[in-house]
Design a protein around this nucleic acid. Structure first.
Length: 570
RNA sequence: UGAGGGUUGGUGCAGCGGCAGCACGACGGGUUCUGACCCCGUUAACCAAGGUUCGAAUCCUUGACCCUCAGCCA
């Protein structure tokens, strides 16, 4: 079991996460003393976008391992491509990792901090005759590479002398060559069965402004060259990345072995796929720039900023990551699991409140006209320490439209003509009359109440089949509530020809004129609560003005009645 | 037709030569001032075929199917 119930205290989480193949490897390495028992991992995002739930899996894995095995986890920004990267992203990434509850201590690095050393390593490779400057065009390089089944052929520039290569590489560095004129390549084997090993590019010319190094450099190292060496420089022991880098491991090893430097071990695991959403950076960017969502933090987005705004807690996401496990096979995690973990967390923590989303006016005819009284409501039945509050009750109330049916089917327990139900924490009421407008729509209910049931229990012991939530009309405050559904209407939108064609048109429904209990008037942004019988909601962190709360639905409560209803309709 | 990986209930993950387990889901029941939570129960899987072994999800062989790789992205 995970020990995450103790809130933010990560050190207390017991050897929490279930066993997985990476833990086996680390434990084996520790046993054999391979890295003197050290465990140093790293989370290496490229600062070119916002973090999403898939990154959370990697963060929880890398930081979690470092905590459980008493090591460190470095936060390293892999900023080797100046054209795509921005400081805005590094700030959001730091905020998201911190929000998730992890601490990189003083281990915050940038690959760009190593540019000088990486350049020196490249020069060493050239001197060893293991790298050369290729003046072939990008297109020719592709042609010379061969195909999956045919070997490539050597570039005519492959046998330039060390001195010529040194001079050319320096010229590249000094800006004497244009973008695309040449690249530095490793000299490995153009007939290698692994395409990655067919003389991969190590450096390219980019006359672009870098967000940290400015205009100091006009050549930038490629991922394959920079990453293994950065891991080596930092003394990483286990370099954990996703499956698509399996083919790159041979090159990772080749570079470190050829240079004879400290050699971490690369281990690959399967990235997260979540049903009813997309987790590729390219697609997420498209959703934002195409205006399909309101931004990176749209509550429907799988980004950490979106989930946070939606009302997900860091604990729930960490717990999710523990539960999905880590393996090498491609899989698709059911969205239902993410909903489960946030319900589980909020059930323990969230205040219960009463809110009526779709109000139906109810007049208690035998209740005095100008009277109001306060009734006691429990804040959280799961946690007595959360106390109780006072709720105003009066003659005119609102209940949920869905809680009344004039001609109820068999399994409908709620209010209907002549039936008695309980108003939570208040009284038993009986519906005595249904008032409709000209079009036949029910606009008001007249009811009677039993004063002896004050607080919600009948002294004579009689039972009711339903308990309804309600608010006092005179005391309730108006609120806007947004109901969210999945962003996509199909389980695997990434498999669609065009993922934008399977967007769910009803992914957000904005309700106005909702009536919430007065205690919510000054709920702070981000405040999470349970609207009893409806779901978990949180106060939006952007769109609120004081006294006029806007709520986002985090997730519904599990609902038996919808199932029964659906079965009836079939 | 090249190379590297992968395949266990509906879903995700364990099990690493000795009774196939956990979680989510689904289904049924109990409880209930939330048709929630909680509790109890049921359901349902080792890709296939050979081989080794007293014994195979696990080791070996062959095959099937799936994923990744032909960026001067990461």
């Amino acid at each position: 079991m995970s020990g995450s119930s103790t809130g933010n205290n990560l050190e207390n989480r017991i050897p929490s996460a279930p066993p997985n193949f990476i833990r086996h490897i680390i434990e084996e390495d520790t046993r054999t003393g391979k890295y003197d028992g050290r465990v140093i991992t790293r989370f290496p995002p490229e600062p070119n976008g916002y973090l999403h739930i898939g990154h959370a899996k990697s963060i929880c894995l890398n930081f979690g391992l470092s905590i459980d095995y008493h090591g460190d986890c470095h936060l390293r920004f892999d900023d080797t491509n100046p054209e795509k990267e921005e400081v805005e992203y590094v700030e959001s990434i730091k905020a998201d990792v911190r929000w998730l509850g992890f601490d990189w201590k003083d281990h915050r690095y940038f690959t760009s901090d190593y540019f000088d050393r990486l350049y020196d390593y490249a020069v060493r490779l050239i001197r060893m005759g293991k790298a050369y400057v290729d003046s072939l065009s990008a297109e020719d390089i592709r042609r010379y590479r061969g195909t999956l089944t045919e070997p490539g052929k050597d570039s005519p520039f492959r046998n330039r002398s060390v001195d010529e290569n040194l001079a050319l590489f320096q010229k590249m560095k000094e800006g004497g060559l244009d973008e695309g004129e040449c690249v530095l390549r490793a000299k490995i084997d153009m007939a290698a069965p692994n395409m990655v090993m067919r003389d991969p590019a190590l450096y390219r010319i980019r006359k672009a402004h870098h967000h940290r190094t400015g205009d100091k450099w006009c050549i930038y190292p490629m991922y394959d060259f920079a990453h293994c060496l950065s891991d080596s420089i930092e003394g990483i022991t286990h370099s954990i990345c996703t499956l698509e880098f399996e083919n790159n491991r041979e090159l990772y090893d080749w570079i470190l072995d050829t240079l004879k430097v400290y050699h971490p071990r690369q281990i690959e695991f399967a990235r997260l796929n979540l049903s009813y959403t997309v987790l590729s950076k390219r697609k997420l960017i498209e959703l934002v720039t195409g205006g399909h969502v309101t931004g990176w933090d749209d509550p429907r987005m799988p980004t950490l900023s979106g989930l946070r705004r939606r009302g997900y807690t860091p604990e729930s996401i960490r717990n999710f990551c523990d539960r999905i496990g880590v393996a090498k096979r491609d899989s698709m995690v059911d969205l239902g699991l993410l909903e489960y973990v946030i319900r589980e967390d909020l059930n323990k923590k969230a205040h219960r409140v009463m809110a009526v989303l779709n109000p139906l006016r109810v007049v208690i005819e035998n209740y005095p006209e100008d009277q109001a009284e306060m009734l006691t409501a429990v804040n959280n039945p799961e946690d007595p320490d959360m106390g109780a509050r006072q709720l105003p009750f009066s003659r005119v109330l609102y209940i949920e439209r869905d809680d009344f049916m004039e001609n109820p089917p068999k399994k409908f327990f709620r209010l209907s003509p002549g039936r008695e139900v309980r108003l939570r924490y208040a009284y038993f009421i009986t519906c005595t009359e249904v008032i409709k407008n000209e079009t036949g729509e029910v606009v008001e209910l007249r009811c009677s109440y039993d004063p002896a049931t004050r607080g919600g229990d009948a002294p004579d012991g009689r039972k009711v089949k339903a308990t309804l939530h309600w608010v006092s009309a005179a005391h309730a405050i108006d609120a806007q509530v947004r109901l969210y559904e999945t962003l996509f209407s199909v389980e695997n939108p990434a498999a669609a020809e065009d993922f934008k064609a399977v967007l769910n048109a009803g992914s957000v429904q904005t309700l106005t004129g909702c009536k919430v209990e007065p205690s919510l008037a000054d709920a702070p942004p981000g405040f999470s609560c349970q609207f009893e019988r409806l779901g978990y909601f949180c106060v939006d962190i952007r769109d609120c003005v004081p006294g006029r709360p806007v709520f986002n639905r985090v997730v519904t409560l599990k609902d038996m009645w919808v199932k029964i209803k659906d079965q009836h309709q079939k």
